[in-house]
Amino acid sequence: SGWQYDTQCSLAGVGIEMGDWQEVWDENTGCYYYWNTQTNEVTWELPQYLATQVQGLQHYQP
C-alpha cells in the first residue's frame, strides 16, 4: 500500500481508539513516534492497528 500518514500530525484530535498505543513527540525529528505500552514496541510508522482506523475515517483528508 502506498498510503502514508504524516507523523508530524497528531492523532489527538482525530478521535480514534489508541488501544495499547501512545503517541510520543520526538523533539529531535519534529515527528511523533508510537509506543506500545503492553509490548514496549516502538515504531516510527503508524501501527496497523491505528492506520486501519485512520483510513476508515470519512472526514480524514490526507
Rank of each mutant, 00 (worst) to 15 (best):
W35Q: 15
C31T: 10
Q61W: 04
Y60I: 15
H59L: 11
D6T: 09
T29V: 10
L46K: 02
Y33Q: 04
C31E: 04
C31Q: 12
V42N: 08
Y32H: 09
W25A: 08
M18Y: 03
G19Q: 05
E17L: 03
N36S: 03
V24N: 07
T39K: 10
P62E: 04
L50P: 01
E23C: 00
C9G: 11
W44H: 07
G2I: 15
W25C: 07
P62Q: 07
H59V: 09
Q4R: 14
E41H: 03
V14C: 11
Q38T: 15
Q8A: 15
H59R: 10
E41P: 01
N36K: 02
G56H: 08
Q58W: 04
L57A: 07
Y60S: 13
H59K: 15
A51L: 06
Q48N: 11
T29C: 11
G2T: 15
H59F: 11
T29L: 12
L11P: 02
Y34A: 00
D20E: 09
P47A: 00
A51V: 07
D20V: 07
Y49C: 11
C31N: 14
L57K: 15
Q22C: 04
G56E: 15
Y5R: 08
W44G: 09
Q61H: 07
Y5Q: 05
S1V: 11
W35H: 15
E27L: 04
Q53G: 01
N36T: 00
W3G: 06
E27Q: 09
D20S: 06
Y32F: 12
T52K: 15
Q4L: 05
E17N: 05
T29A: 15
W21Y: 11
T7P: 06
Q8W: 04
I16G: 01
D26N: 11
G15L: 02
E23N: 00
E45Q: 13
Y60Q: 14
V54N: 03
N36P: 00
V42K: 14
D26V: 05
G56W: 09
I16K: 03
Q61L: 10
Q61P: 08
Q58H: 12
W44M: 07
V54H: 01
E45V: 06
W44F: 10
V54M: 13
Q53C: 01
T29Y: 13
G56R: 13
S10K: 04
T39L: 04
D20N: 07
G15Y: 02
L50A: 00
G19L: 03
S1F: 04
V24H: 09
D6V: 00
Q61Y: 06
A51F: 05
G15C: 08
Y34G: 02
Y60C: 13
D20M: 06
Q38P: 03
D20L: 05
E27S: 08
M18I: 07
Q8N: 12
D6P: 01
N36C: 07
V42S: 13
P47N: 05
E17T: 11
A51K: 12
C9D: 13
Y34W: 04
Y32N: 03
G2P: 09
G19N: 02
C31A: 13
S1L: 03
V24E: 08
E23R: 02
E27G: 11
T7K: 12
C9F: 12
Y5T: 06
T39D: 09
L46F: 04
W35T: 15
G56Y: 04
D26H: 05
L11Y: 03
P47G: 00
Q55V: 09
P47H: 00
Y34K: 01
T7R: 11
Y49Q: 14
N36W: 00
N28Q: 05
V24F: 09
G15D: 14
G13Q: 08
Y60R: 14
L46W: 03
W3A: 12
W35R: 15
C31W: 02
A51Q: 03
Y60K: 13
G30R: 14
Q22F: 04
E27M: 05
E23Q: 04
Q38H: 12
G19I: 01
T52M: 07
D26G: 05
G13D: 11
T39Y: 02
T52S: 13
Q61K: 11
T43S: 12
I16E: 03
H59S: 12
D20G: 07
T7H: 06
C9S: 13
T29N: 11
W21E: 00
L11G: 01
N28M: 06
C9Y: 10
E41G: 04
Y32V: 01
E17P: 02
W25T: 05
D20T: 05
D26S: 12
A12G: 14
G15E: 08
L46M: 07
M18L: 06
P47C: 00
Q4Y: 08
Q58M: 11
Q48W: 04
E23F: 03
V24W: 04
D20R: 12
Y33C: 08
N36E: 06
L57N: 08
E41Y: 07
T37G: 09
W21D: 01
V24M: 05
T39E: 05
Q55W: 13
V14M: 12
L57D: 11
Q53H: 01
D26C: 07
Q55R: 10
N36F: 01
G56A: 12
Y49A: 13
G19V: 00
G2Y: 15
I16P: 01
Y49E: 14
W21A: 00
M18H: 04
Q61M: 09
Q53L: 04
T7W: 03
E17D: 15
N36H: 07
L11D: 04
S1D: 14
Q55D: 12
